[in-house]
Lab assay of single mutants.
Amino acid sequence: MAAGGDHGSPDSYRSPLASRYASPEMCFVFSDRYKFRTWRQLWLWLAEAEQTLGLPITDEQIQEMKSNLENIDFKMAAEEEKRLRHDVMAHVHTFGHCCPKAAGIIHLGATSCYVGDNTDLIILRNALDLLLPKLARVISRLADFAKERASLPTLGFTHFQPAQLTTVGKRCCLWIQDLCMDLQNLKRVRDDLRFRGVKGTTGTQASFLQLFEGDDHKVEQLDKMVTEKAGFKRAFIITGQTYTRKVDIEVLSVLASLGASVHKICTDIRLLANLKEMEEPFEKQQIGSSAMPYKRNPMRSERCCSLARHLMTLVMDPLQTASVQWFERTLDDSANRRICLAEAFLTADTILNTLQNISEGLVVYPKVIERRIRQELPFMATENIIMAMVKAGGSRQDCHEKIRVLSQQAASVVKQEGGDNDLIERIQVDAYFSPIHSQLDHLLDPSSFTGRASQQVQRFLEEEVYPLLKPYESVMKVKAELCL
């Protein structure tokens, strides 16, 4: 049975990233139509530049190519590739079939990587351009969430054990800070992308030097003109047959890092959902379990974690691919890159769409948070109580021993009897502590235990987050809708 299948058929496997999760716009960027249309555009740009620099290419040939950029006979191309065992030459023939007058000058002087690699770089750039505003929107939604809850005390956790208090907004800023680093890295790697350009079979530009009869300047002009037509500021000066596969490492490393950030955020949300302090959106008709109707599973956060793990592992592909590119190139890269580049971007696209949807509907339960604080705060307040007693004339050592005994009794009630923490009640009825009984409410005010959390939130948002989001103001209103 021949390899390949009808990918629109229910009898043929289709990647869930495309069929179930990723956005239509990201799927289109990695589609065959987008790819092969870009090949034709690159052939047109090459012909236009070659004509401008004096090669015998007519206006009629150029116009014929322009008129057929979208006229792609995919069936013919597939048949040609089956016959020739070469995808680029299959599309040269297919393009030439609908451009008979231009057929002889299509791909003039070029090698397969002229269309293959340059198209990949265009796709990487455009895919990054799709991700950047999506990530900015996630940051914006979380920034709104953090600002609104900047002063809401909550129990902090280290080692997932109760620690000092923080605020809900401050905790959210930990998430935002990681995503801001990801946004900066995505922008950097996007701006650092260079075009492969017009380089020939081993990167020496020998074929173009021959076409222009040894004119170095025209060869350099050709490279520059096509690079500018493709919208790049610069091209690699040095290439082998391909652009260095280190570029793929750079791009997928940034995406993998984004995956790590999203995994951490969504894990926190899942843990908070278990504590009943916070939940992701839950639709009115949504079913959490087929057997347990009360369940409210954090399905979206779980999906993000599941896909983020996949995204983090994909960076190993370009690392290994770059390491086995012998001399000017081997074909070890080809099949692998067809999979890992598309999957990385479709996965990143999915987790950003999902995280935006989550961040637009996060639900906080202040009463649950308050109750958990009441359970733990008495123990945390013991040092403040000791200091207040010393100020009232008591002995630190005597007070410490009193607190120690009462704390152990209260802990026994919590752990052995399943009761509430009654340390404060014990202190309130103990005559030894009568000098500070009137101060206990103040000493137990949760806001006095959150330090500068709310001020940190305000400063972080104003100095770091809002300036970073400013270039994306025009796209901030787009909502994230999930079908599944």
Rank of each mutant, 00 (worst) to 15 (best):
G4R: 13
G5H: 04
D6S: 12
S9I: 14
R14A: 09
S15A: 15
S15C: 09
R20T: 04
A22G: 11
P24L: 14
P24V: 11
M26W: 05
F36G: 10
Q41K: 12
W45D: 15
E48S: 07
E48N: 05
T52H: 08
T58M: 06
I62Q: 04
Q63E: 04
L69C: 13
E70L: 03
E70S: 14
N71E: 05
I72W: 10
D73I: 05
E80A: 14
E81R: 06
E81H: 08
L84A: 10
L84V: 08
L84N: 13
V88A: 14
H91K: 00
T94M: 12
G96T: 15
C98P: 10
C98K: 07
P100S: 15
A102H: 03
H107G: 02
G109S: 05
S112K: 04
G116P: 09
N118V: 01
T119K: 00
D120I: 06
L121E: 11
L121R: 02
I122C: 08
L124C: 04
R125D: 10
L131G: 04
P133Y: 12
P133S: 10
L135Q: 15
V138R: 04
V138P: 11
A143T: 08
D144A: 10
D144Y: 10
F145E: 13
A146T: 07
S151R: 06
T154Q: 11
T154N: 08
G156L: 01
F157M: 07
F157Y: 08
F160W: 04
A163E: 07
G169Q: 02
L174W: 11
L179Q: 03
C180S: 11
M181P: 03
M181H: 11
D182P: 07
K187E: 13
V189S: 13
D191H: 07
D191S: 11
R194D: 12
R196Q: 10
G200W: 01
T201K: 08
L209V: 12
F212A: 07
D215T: 12
D215V: 09
D216R: 08
H217M: 05
K218Q: 06
K229P: 01
A230V: 09
G231I: 03
R234I: 06
I238Q: 10
G240A: 11
T242R: 02
T244E: 05
K246I: 07
S253W: 10
S253P: 01
S253G: 09
S257T: 11
L258Y: 09
S261W: 03
H263I: 09
K264N: 04
I265C: 13
L272T: 07
A273V: 09
K276C: 03
F282M: 00
K284Y: 15
Q286G: 02
S289M: 04
Y294G: 01
Y294F: 04
Y294P: 01
P298R: 01
S301H: 15
S301V: 10
E302W: 00
R303Y: 03
L307G: 10
A308M: 04
A308L: 02
A308D: 02
M316N: 09
D317M: 13
P318Y: 00
L319D: 00
S323M: 14
W326S: 06
E328N: 00
R329Q: 02
N336Q: 12
E343G: 13
E343W: 05
D349K: 02
D349H: 07
T350H: 03
Q356R: 12
N357F: 15
I358D: 15
E360H: 07
G361Y: 12
L362G: 04
Y365N: 15
E370L: 05
R374A: 07
Q375M: 04
Q375H: 09
E376R: 03
P378I: 10
F379A: 02
A381Q: 13
M387R: 10
A388Q: 01
A388H: 05
V390S: 07
G393E: 09
S395G: 08
Q397R: 08
H400N: 03
I403F: 09
K415Y: 05
Q416D: 10
Q416H: 09
E417P: 01
E417M: 12
G418Y: 00
G419P: 02
G419M: 13
D422P: 12
D422G: 11
L423I: 11
R426S: 11
Y432M: 12
S434C: 11
H437D: 12
Q439P: 06
L444E: 04
D445C: 13
S447R: 12
A453R: 01
A453M: 01
Q456M: 11
Q456G: 08
Q458F: 07
R459W: 13
L461E: 06
L461M: 09
E462P: 03
P467M: 13
P467S: 12
L469H: 05
Y472H: 13
V475H: 15
M476D: 15
M476P: 15
K477P: 14
K479E: 15
E481C: 14
L482E: 14
